[in-house]
């Protein structure tokens, strides 16, 4: 495997913003890059509302509808390591060790004076701001104070009172725990490896766009013979987070998780090997 430069995988960050990140992964196998993508999407734990106890709901939306909407609200999960999975916790249902409690109580009072004034907008927007968290580190993502996440619209006389239990989880279980909205992934923008066969009517040039990622690579030389041994080596990735954690954290955590997985495997294998060696006596 001398095609990879010595020194192992490399990462170069092309751009880094508050909730998105572009980077190039190189010098590694496709499987590793894809594993990273998969882990980022589905296995990085975050916090999300998992249980909703509704005390009063006289809004136009049904209980289950509101509960579902609450679940989709991204919660800040910088400190998610501090919290345990409920399945690993000693408690029966939930406890402060494995959950964070958020409450919401909005009641729109009927104002007799305003009632008949059509100019006053009497609709109350219940948003993620109204969710009060018991834990400062786990609260709805509100980057944009002017446009918080709308939960339900209420009219005078309606009330919504509920308690949410946010738990730690991974997107494998439910999409709401995914830290990212999407992960872009590309390799070989010039299709030098000929993994794909572009469907055309006239010509590739006029009908197919060359991806912006191609800037990072040398354009193919038409006279160059096809290298059928070539392997993909540069992976252009971009991820956009829900705001629950920093994009670089998502990548780092994903790598840690992969490491842990391999570590676990190593330990298991070690045990197995010693056990087997004893049994077979060599």
């Amino acid at each position: 495997m001398d095609m990879f430069n010595a020194g192992g995988p490399e990462v170069s960050i092309r751009s880094l913003k508050k909730d998105s990140m572009k980077f190039v992964l190189s010098n590694c196998d496709l499987s590793v890059a894809n594993a990273l993508r998969r882990v980022m999407i589905a296995e990085v734990p975050t916090m999300a509302i998992d249980m909703v106890e509704i005390e009063s709901n006289t809004t136009v939306l049904t209980d289950e509808f509101i509960a579902h909407r609450l679940g989709m609200i991204p919660l800040t999960s910088f400190d998610v390591d501090r919290i345990q999975y409920t399945r690993d916790c000693t408690c029966t249902l939930y406890c402060p060790n494995c959950s964070v409690e958020l409450t919401l109580h909005v009641k729109v009072n009927v104002d007799i004076d305003e009632m008949n004034d059509a100019t006053i907008d009497k609709t109350r927007h219940v948003t993620s701001i109204d969710l009060i968290s018991s834990d400062e580190s786990v609260k709805p993502v509100t980057d944009d104070k002017a446009h918080p996440i709308l939960i339900v619209k209420m009219r005078p006389g309606q009330e919504l009172k509920l308690k949410c239990i946010a738990k730690k989880g991974v997107a494998k279980e439910h999409a709401k725990w995914s830290p990212v909205y999407g992960v872009a992934f590309e390799y070989d923008p010039y299709n030098k490896l000929r993994h794909s066969h572009y469907w055309i009517e006239e010509s590739v040039e006029s009908e197919w766009f060359v991806s912006p990622n191609a800037q990072e690579e040398t354009p193919p030389d038409p006279n160059e013979p096809f290298d059928y041994n070539a392997k993909p080596e540069k992976y252009y990735m971009e991820l956009e987070t829900s705001g629950c954690m920093k994009p670089e954290d998502v990548v780092l955590r994903a790598m840690t998780i992969m490491q842990d997985k391999l570590g676990g495997l190593q330990i298991k294998l070690d045990d197995e090997v010693t056990g087997e060696a004893q049994r077979w006596g060599y």
Binding site: L30, S31, N34, S196, H197, W199
Partner: peptide
């Protein structure tokens, strides 16, 4: 697998 499909 992360591999590009043979066809678009």
């Amino acid at each position: 697998t992360g591999e590009e499909f043979k066809v678009d």
